[in-house]
């Protein structure tokens, strides 16, 4: 296992390098003068000149990159001109809100997706299978920004069960029930697409495994059906699903942009959309970098979990 961890861990380095390079390139590619873009249109020429020196903007691009990377690694993401506060403070605060939303959505995705997939596979060709298969396809075809609004119309405005918008911080003064009350609609709206993907994959992996000889052997040894399904079949089927759960985190983190916009959730997605509007490039850069690096690490974690579950991967 240790060799695999090292091998897979080392793959993170070039990818992370590429990610930083691409995020840095954003600055070079925006039209106009970067220093002026960072400081906003009301900056004095002196301020612009100072910043240009600080960021080595008068030097060749590779020097600029190294300067920028050095700043970022030491936690200096610059200062947002539109908010007049350090970018790092803002993106960390916003990211915790997004993590609360996306984390809850991930929980719903995994529980719903795996359960629906297992039931559909076990009841293949029965009504449960058809219901879940169509349900999964409906789930992954509904645009989450639309579903979020439908949820508001039905469950918030119509039935009045949940608030229409807003967030309560996870570790704030309001109790866990209030936090949850605000979370249910946005997290579910976000989760359904990903749950559809997971359900379809779980179903097909389970069907494949259930056809294997060892499952028949287990059944003929007189082991209970439940044990055959969960201990023998599911444990092997889930191996294929784990890395895709990692990929789905990317869809949740991205899709959060829509859901946050609809529900007025103060997360990083909504911040990005606002920052594009105010052309606050440092905020966009910092936010994208933070989320992308998180996603790289989550995919790493998913692959390591998969390897822990399946010796063929860590030894192959």
């Amino acid at each position: 296992m240790r060799a695999y961890v090292v091998r897979r861990g080392l793959q993170v380095i070039p990818v992370t390098f590429g990610v930083t390079l691409l995020v840095f390139a954003m600055m070079l590619l925006i039209p106009g003068d970067p220093a002026r873009a960072i400081l906003g249109s009301y900056a004095t020429p002196e301020n612009v000149a100072t910043l240009e020196r600080q960021l080595a903007l008068d030097r060749p691009p590779h020097i600029q990159y190294v300067t920028w990377l050095g700043n970022v690694v030491t936690g200096d993401f610059g200062r947002s001109y539109s908010l007049n506060r350090p970018v790092l403070d803002e993106i960390l605060e916003r990211f915790s809100a997004t993590l609360l939303l996306a984390g809850t959505a991930l929980l719903i995705t995994v529980v719903l997706g795996l359960t629906a997939g297992i039931i559909a596979a076990v009841k293949q060709h029965r009504w449960q299978d058809r219901a879940f298969t169509v349900g999964a396809l409906v789930g992954l075809s509904i645009p989450s920004f639309w579903l979020a609004m439908i949820f508001i119309v039905v469950f918030a405005l119509g039935l009045g069960w949940f608030p229409t918008s807003g967030m309560r911080p996870a570790f704030g003064p309001s109790g866990p029930l209030t936090v949850l009350h605000h979370l249910v609609l946005p997290a579910t709206a976000l989760a359904l697409v990903a749950a559809g993907v997971i359900a379809r994959l779980t179903r097909s992996s389970m069907l494949e495994v259930l056809r294997q000889d060892y499952v028949r052997t287990a059944t003929s040894k007189g082991i209970t059906r439940q044990s055959v399904i969960m201990r023998h079949a599911f444990r092997n089927a889930v191996v294929n699903v784990v890395p895709v759960i990692g990929v789905q985190v990317g869809f949740l983190l991205g899709g959060a942009v829509y859901v946050e916009t609809v529900f007025g959730w103060p997360g990083i997605g909504r911040m990005l959309v606002t920052a594009i509007g105010t052309r606050d490039i440092l905020l966009v850069q910092g936010g994208v970098l933070l989320v992308a690096i998180t996603y790289v690490l989550i995919n790493l974690a998913a692959d390591l979990v998969q390897a822990a579950l399946d010796p063929r991967i860590r030894l192959g």
Partner: peptide, 10 residues
């Protein structure tokens, strides 16, 4: 390595 929609937004 970028979350799908996030790269589009960037």
């Amino acid at each position: 390595a970028f979350p799908y929609l996030l790269l589009a937004i960037a």
